[in-house]
Design a protein around this nucleic acid. Structure first.
Length: 265
DNA sequence: ATGGTGGATGCTCCA
């Protein structure tokens, strides 16, 4: 059984439905994890997505903000929904895939601008979110489980995951406290960073470029915020990873680009 | 040092 999985913060699934269909045609993933779909479940464009070959869908949306979805060519079973930090703000979806693989799709809070949890409630929420997920993963610790964790984690952990390590040390997404907490989360189950498995440091690699740059490609001030991790039993199955940088140049693009990993038995 | 853009929403929030 071969599996090609893509994660993409699409920043409005309704506005960018044509781009999603293009991704399906050009990359042909078996499974797609979307974040920031920004739509209620009832208004999710389920039919055109099914018609494009992805009839199996787990949608966890809300009005206006956040929202995640898992789209699949292959049959999947929805996992049990759960909230984090006492909220139900549509930041996590679970699906059970063929081959006894448990898939988690996360949209971690961005965390606002001020990197101090005492001054900035959004940053506190982000740190608490990571802590809660970490505790939960550690509690459910079964190292032999075949699991994939994908999504917009809103943290660029490595120096080569940002355009300037020193200039971003106090910028939310690359602060030492976030990087440390993400590292702890990764340690819970010995998660393997499936993309850095193929694009080893110190090679620079980004998945997000701000809308605010005059020329995003020329300045290339990117960050790697979108991730795909696998548990150790899947490590030997990793075949390929790809960041679709071209998608940042598509018409009316998301500020994030799709990240894809292929696994083979 | 600052402000820059984009999406959903509805006289503003979030990224």
């Amino acid at each position: 059984m071969s599996l090609r999985l893509t994660t993409w913060n699409i920043n409005s699934v309704r506005l960018r439905l044509p781009l999603l269909l293009r991704l399906m045609r050009e990359v042909k993933p078996d499974v797609i994890c979307l974040q920031e779909i920004k739509v209620e479940d009832a208004s999710f464009p389920a039919e055109p997505i099914a018609a494009a070959g992805y009839p199996h869908q787990v949608v966890r949306g809300m009005k206006g903000y956040n929202g995640v979805a898992i789209l699949s060519r292959v049959v999947l079973e929805r996992g049990e929904d759960r909230g984090w930090c006492g909220r139900d703000d549509s930041r996590h979806a679970i699906a059970h895939l063929p081959g006894k693989i448990e898939l988690h799709n996360f949209y971690v809070p961005a965390g606002g601008d001020v990197p101090d949890p005492a001054q900035n409630e959004k940053f506190a929420h982000k740190l608490n979110f990571i802590d809660e997920v970490t505790l939960w993963l550690a509690d459910a610790r079964i190292r032999s489980k075949r699991m994939i964790l994908a999504g917009d984690l809103n943290i660029a952990p490595l120096e080569c995951d940002v355009w300037s390590h020193t200039q971003l040390l106090d910028v939310v997404s690359h602060t030492p406290i976030e990087v440390e907490k993400l590292g702890r989360m990764q340690d819970t189950l010995g998660w393997v960073d499936a993309v850095r498995h193929f694009v080893a440091p110190p090679e620079k690699l980004y998945t997000w470029w701000s809308y605010r740059a005059r020329d995003w490609a020329a300045s290339d001030r990117g960050r790697r915020l979108d991730h795909i991790w696998v548990t150790p039993p899947l490590k030997k199955m990793l075949k390929r990873a790809h960041v679709l940088r071209d998608a940042r140049n598509w018409e009316q693009p998301s500020d994030h680009v799709p990240v894809t990993v292929e696994l083979d038995p």
